[in-house]
């Protein structure tokens, strides 16, 4: 993002897969790790990882969020970057961990980690300066950036830079690119009518672009958008950006 100072390319990184990826989109996580490994990094996947704690935090369950987040704080002892295939979970660690642990013995650890957290696409662009060779067939794609990726991580252009760098990919912009898809974690089930209206507008916007695939960097949005597309029996499919990049560049 603008204003953030990025480190030089490290030898190793931690990878925090996130719970949604772990349960529903493991190929996205694996692809992310393979992309990093292909760039010459040693990728460490801490075995103790579960969830960043965001679901509880967003619902005002601070003690529960802290209990879960504390478990993650122990996983990254070495002073190397922590990369996440999710702007939302990265935002939780980067923006909210320091507040969540303020005044507790874990405050220093929380601050330390918040400084080392990167969303995958920003890490690929700014730290690794990745340049991919596209091996895929021509395809038209639309990009959906998650709200937290855009607003908490300041990651707006990086994923699109990566997509535009693929020779056979035509990137089409959504009319309301910055508008929320209606996921919002538990919002989608607590306010199902509003969430449904939001995702209906988002899928219509995607449909209007004529894109064959919608690419996103967050699996929450992806589950929401592709779930709606599938229910509508739309031919448009969805892909996490890590998986999309890996599929097109894996020789």
């Amino acid at each position: 993002m603008a204003g953030r100072t990025y480190p030089a390319k490290p030898e190793a990184v931690y990878f925090f897969g996130t719970c949604l990826v772990d349960l529903f989109y493991p190929q996205a996580g694996l692809s992310g790790m393979k992309l990093l490994r292909r760039e010459g990094l040693r990728v460490v996947f801490p075995k103790g990882q579960t969830c960043c704690g965001q679901p509880a935090y967003n619902n005002g369950r601070f003690a529960d969020a802290r209990a879960v987040a504390r478990q993650q704080l122990r996983l990254f002892p070495k002073p190397i970057p922590v990369v996440l295939p999710s702007g939302s979970c990265a935002g939780m660690m980067r923006k909210h961990y320091p507040d969540l642990f303020a005044g507790t013995p874990d405050e220093a650890a929380a601050r330390d980690i918040s400084e080392r957290v990167f969303e995958l696409s920003e890490f690929l662009v700014h730290v690794l300066k990745a340049d991919f060779t596209d091996l895929g067939a021509p395809v038209k794609v639309a990009w959906h950036g998650s709200c937290h990726s855009q607003r908490e991580m300041g990651v707006r252009e990086e994923p699109k830079t990566l997509l535009r760098g693929l020779a056979n990919v035509e990137l089409v912009e959504l009319e309301r690119e910055r508008e929320c898809c209606g996921f919002g974690g538990t919002f989608s089930v607590k306010e199902p009518a509003v969430s449904a209206a939001m995702v209906a507008d988002k899928t219509a916007d995607i449909g209007n672009t004529g894109a064959e695939t919608v690419v996103s960097g967050d699996c929450g949005c992806l589950m929401n958008i592709t779930g709606a597309l599938e229910k509508q029996q739309s031919p448009v499919c969805g892909r996490h950006i890590a998986e999309f990049l890996w599929e097109r560049t894996d020789g």
Partner: peptide
């Protein structure tokens, strides 16, 4: 109401990472 049911992956990322030869500390 407006979405398909999410599908649990048969293998978690934890498992894929281990099988993929990543450091699983």
């Amino acid at each position: 109401r407006v979405r398909a049911k999410p599908r649990f992956a048969p293998k978690s990322l934890h498992r894929l990472a281990r099988e993929g030869g990543f450091d699983h500390e």
